[in-house]
Nucleic acid binder design. Structure first.
Length: 124
DNA sequence: ACCATGACTAGAA
DNA sequence: CTTCTAGCCATGG
């Protein structure tokens, strides 16, 4: 029975489940390598994968990050300004900030304090 | 098929 | 300095 058409696409492969499959996997893989107490940006991950201008896709990948295993530390990924742009996708929203502070990262006004200092470059 | 939206970013004004 | 524009590309109406 063919059934199953909607939902359950982000967990194993990708939203489209085609060409980006590898891309999404790489995004998750890189995210998992972010050291504890450090953060990185969507663009940095995208650039690391060669798709520098597709930072939005990285964000989209993060959208399903909470459904996959092993777990992906999506809270360590912020935008290029160090702003917790994805906090509203957490549960509850304050969860992201809480997790970061728990790792020693200071957060003020939805922004990572001393962002450049705790920034981790995936390319390294 | 077209249009609007989005966890983004670099560059122009 | 701030604000706007264009590129990006999958998803949903």
């Amino acid at each position: 029975m063919p059934a199953k058409k909607t939902h359950q696409r982000l967990s194993t492969v990708t939203p489209s489940g085609k060409k980006d499959q590898n891309f999404f996997e790489q995004v998750y893989e890189v995210a998992r390598q972010i050291p504890r107490g450090r953060v990185t940006s969507y663009g940095a991950i995208a650039a690391c994968l060669g798709t520098k201008s597709s930072a939005r896709m990285v964000g989209w990948a993060m959208n399903g990050a909470h459904l996959i295993r092993p777990t992906v530390p999506a809270h360590r990924v912020v935008n290029r300004n160090g702003i917790l742009s994805g906090k509203h996708h957490f549960n509850p929203p304050g969860r992201m900030e809480k997790l970061l502070k728990k790792e020693g990262i200071k957060v003020k006004d939805d922004t990572v304090v001393e962002f450049e200092r705790v920034f981790w470059n995936p390319a390294e």
